[in-house]
Design a binder for these strands. Structure first.
Lengths: 137, 137
DNA sequence: CTATTTGTAACTGCTATTGTTACATTGATG
DNA sequence: CATCAATGTAACAATAGCAGTTACAAATAG
């Protein structure tokens, strides 16, 4: 299956935007997402590194680190994608002695890059606030 | 790793657009992609079902089933993606007794759907001919 | 000091993908 | 017709990534 970190990350932040910090333990969030609290802390840690979420060892609860209007789905997406995770994989080491094999990776990088860019621009146009409105309408 | 079928599929079609059918055996293509001939036949089979490639048991070689101008990256992408393969996974069975958990899947489906749509439109704007031009320039 | 919670490492089970072997089927060729 | 060379596909192994879990160190409130 495809990884669901992005989905869980949005869920965590949506909860953080609508539940007071004192209630927002990893266990509480896990109850809403329906997973294990460690999964929440793991993804919460990525969101924290990206500056989207606040939390501290020993202190109960998580809290948003920015206004919902200022957090885009692109921010969240980039926070939970590992460094070099491309949208599409490119097959490694094609034959350099074939004209196609020699140049295909560059051509694919260009094309796939523009596709990813289009997707990311769309994500950049949707804020956490938009998601909240969608949730409570 | 992420699946590289899309990448291999474009490679197969680019070769088919530039090499005469008699030379285009699965073994030859595999030599350019640098993989096993069965991998080529497997992906070739998907392209054939999508009406992009021609081949026949017993007859040597593969050939394009349409003009390079008429084949888009979206056509190729859809040919090698399995039915329900989403761009982003959505975590299953959130808690229906939580307002966020109850509605998050719908909100994510909407947002993720528009992101996928933007990406697909970009792919639809790139033809195999464009790729060929990029390869031989 | 104790209880609670976060942060993180380590391990398991599961699933998807790629590469591989094997073989039936098809069709061209002598 | 017999042979040979391909394609088409099933089946299996190795690998990798992800989700879930256990365990425990570190931090903080009370």
């Amino acid at each position: 299956m495809i990884n669901t970190r992005f989905s869980v990350a949005v869920h965590i932040l949506a909860l953080s935007a609508s539940v007071p910090r004192e209630k927002l333990t990893s266990e509480y969030i896990a109850g809403s997402v329906n997973t294990n609290p460690v999964v929440i802390r793991r993804i919460g840690s990525m969101l924290k590194k990206a500056g989207l979420l606040e939390s501290q060892a020993g202190i109960r609860g998580f809290a948003l680190a920015a206004q919902p209007e200022a957090i885009t789905l692109l921010d969240i997406y980039q926070a939970v994608q590992k460094e070099e995770e491309a949208l599409f994989g490119v097959h490694p080491s094609p034959n350099p002695r074939c004209p196609v094999g020699q140049n295909i990776q560059g051509a694919l990088d260009t094309a796939f890059g523009s596709a990813r860019h289009a997707m990311e621009q769309e994500l950049a146009g949707i804020s956490l606030k938009n998601i909240m409105n969608d949730l409570f309408s």
